[in-house]
Simulated assay, not measured.
Amino acid sequence: MFFVYKILIINILYYWHNDCFTCIGNINLYHMRTIKLLFTTLTLAVLATACYTEVIIEDEYIDEPVLNVHALLKSHELWYVDINATSGNREVPFLQRAFTVSFVGETVFANNNIVGIGKTGNGFGLDVGYFNTANGRLQINHDVDGYWSLEVFMVDNNTIELYDSNSRTSYYLEGYQRNNFDYDMVFYDNIEYLLQEYDVWEKVTTSKEGLLNDFDSENYLQFYIEGNRSMFNSSVDPSGMHLDDVLWDYSGEYSVFGVYNDETLKTLTLDYDFMGNDYFELYVINDSTIELYHSSSGTVYKFKGKGFISYLKSGISQLDKKRTKTEYGTMKVVRKRKI
């Protein structure tokens, strides 16, 4: 391209020279400098055009490490399902029931009951299915709920998210080892489920201390869910009855509250239909024994659970029992029982 421009310039100067031949001798130094400047400018313009170079700057590629799902799931022995952190409008049934899940070998274990947690299956709970981590996903073949494919995300060193894309629901699981898992925390954070895991609670002792009151005659309690209501039944039948023979004399709604500045104390209020209510301090002795302290009379009642309901092992109950988001209200009361 430069050569073409050069030929063009020479032709222009040639014709200009022929037309002005008679005057060429009179061209002074000023005219020669003007011609030289014109030629130099045209040359630089051609060079600037001909020397164009395309420069491509590529974005820097960062090779992020691939999450090892299999190793992540096995990094903790127990994964506690924080049901209150769940997001989404639907559910993954076996996660909705479980307090903890574990991944041992190729087997999925779950603690679906508060009763026996820490003891059943050496702390892992019941065998509920099988899993694999092909293609970086958690794929579970559950004994009751069938096949599920879940995405796994690491939230932090002790927390993972299990996401079901079909229901657009996320579950958040907190990792523990069996020797550092806070079983007391699980009991008190889920105490309402403990009350519901027995068909009946039978009164076994009444303290000698305390004033006479109507609750002295009530020997059986039953706790259950009806819709979104927490319900109870009460009976004055004598102790020692067969569970199927117990007749319920009273019923109503019950509520459980936490206590301000006292994480280990819960309160229980029985709101009887047409009969007012009874207020108790609720103490968990073990996973089959509770004590109710009747603060207005100063009487302590001990109840033992009868007819344990093992979820996943007892027919229709395995489908009925689901955990729900629960935020216990807090009462600003002072512990009245002297221990």
Rank of each mutant, 00 (worst) to 15 (best):
M231P: 01
T40G: 01
S314T: 08
T107W: 07
D271V: 06
Y15H: 06
Q222T: 07
F223Q: 05
R178P: 00
W79Y: 08
Y30D: 07
N158K: 12
R90C: 02
T34Q: 12
L37M: 07
Y147Q: 13
F131E: 14
T107Y: 13
S75V: 04
T120W: 10
S230G: 10
M185N: 14
Y30G: 05
L47F: 12
T269Y: 12
D271T: 04
S217Q: 05
T43D: 08
T34N: 04
Y52L: 15
N213Q: 13
I140V: 15
K208P: 04
Y272L: 13
D320T: 13
L282W: 05
T264P: 03
N228D: 13
V104F: 15
I83K: 03
S255D: 06
F3G: 04
G123M: 09
S239P: 08
S75K: 05
S314D: 14
G146V: 13
G123T: 07
H17E: 01
L78Q: 00
N18G: 04
F2S: 06
G118R: 02
F99S: 00
K325H: 11
I56D: 10
L282N: 03
L268R: 01
E151V: 03
W16C: 11
L162C: 04
K36E: 12
W148A: 08
F109C: 05
M241Q: 14
T86P: 00
V204P: 01
N113Q: 06
V284Y: 09
V115P: 00
N213W: 14
L29T: 13
G305E: 02
V69G: 03
I114N: 00
G105H: 14
Y311N: 00
F257I: 04
R178G: 14
K306F: 10
G258I: 06
E64A: 06
Y61F: 08
T53P: 07
L73Y: 12
G25M: 11
H294I: 04
L173P: 01
N11R: 04
V333S: 04
C20W: 05
R178L: 15
I309R: 02
R337Q: 05
L13Q: 10
L42R: 03
E291C: 06
E60L: 09
V256C: 08
Y183A: 02
Y254K: 03
I24K: 08
N228I: 01
I10F: 13
Y147D: 14
V115C: 05
R323C: 09
Y328M: 03
G136V: 14
G298Q: 00
N141Q: 11
I10T: 07
T299E: 01
N180I: 10
P93L: 09
D271G: 06
L265H: 04
S149M: 11
I225V: 11
T53L: 11
Q222S: 11
